[in-house]
Amino acid sequence: MADSLEFTGACPIPIQQYPRILLAHGGGGKLMHQLVEKMFLKGFGHPSPRAQHDSAVLTMPAGRLAFTTDSYVVQPLIFPGGDIGSMSVFGTVNDLAMSGARALHLSAGFILEEGLPMETLWRIVCSMRAAADRCGVQIVTGDTKVVDKGRGDGLFINTAGIGVLEHPLLISPDSVRAGDAILVSGDLGRHGIAIMSVREGLGFEATLQSDSAPVAAPILEMLAAGIEIHCLRDLTRGGLASTLNEIAQAASLRLCLEDQLIPVRDDVHAACEMLGLDPLLVACEGRFAAFVAPRDAARALAILQRSQAGAARIGEVAAEMPAVVALQTALGPSRILEMPSGEQLPRIC
């Protein structure tokens, strides 16, 4: 299982033969067949001997299903605390979890750039398998394309996922009500800062690890405990600020947060201060915000904290307009937490 597939350097496609991806690996001939057979089918473990078909045939449980897709582009491909492979599995499983679904099956589409080292690809495939095993999902179908050197960024991955809803709730911004407690599942901003510090060669003394991780388990646990969850949203691009602004606008309600309650680690905070970034706008890959009925807030928080020590209750939903996110600063006065207008750019001084 997962352990035996950990990267050992033993790439199944002999290195001396093709140490790097060639255009021919996407050309439909023998090389492509070999890549699919030895790399992807071996790595992902196909469920039936006849799986190498244009589509996977699945038997689904009765009830509501959730279906999602996401594309993954990240540089470097392998970063402190994760890689594009595990991220592409966790990300899609997490997206399904945001409607309270248990993930069952994933697809994986690869766009490979000519020249990508075969060993890098193998390492990422192994990481996807280990991630899928950890989440209890199977990668059941896939696709490979190769683009000319210089036309890709090493490797892009798209994953789509199907999951099943085993609860009766409508988890959506429409269900958010005045008085709801707003929780976050852990400390914020670590993924974005970890990526930035390696990509830009910032040379911080300690290496920050990305927060990339699956988050379905505590959500399913909350549902099993009968907690009235109104909305869930993962805190990826644009961080907490983007996500909460989207929900405030969709729900037409005002969200009130207390700055001091929002969990940001000291090292992330320090890096943000140095670069002139706001940690509340920095991306996470294994964190989400939960809106729950106030009477269930304490129990929900206990479950989240067992899963991730940094989880916290950061505020509540108010009835007043306008539909903005208001943040009470540590010194007392309130300000708004604006939706970021684009990528944050490090400032001059």
């Binding site: 600063t329 540590a330 010194l331 007392g332 006065p333 309130s334 300000r335």
Partner: peptide, 8 residues
């Protein structure tokens, strides 16, 4: 503006 100092 961030800390609302003018309001103090």
């Amino acid at each position: 503006l961030k800390f609302g100092l003018d309001q103090l």
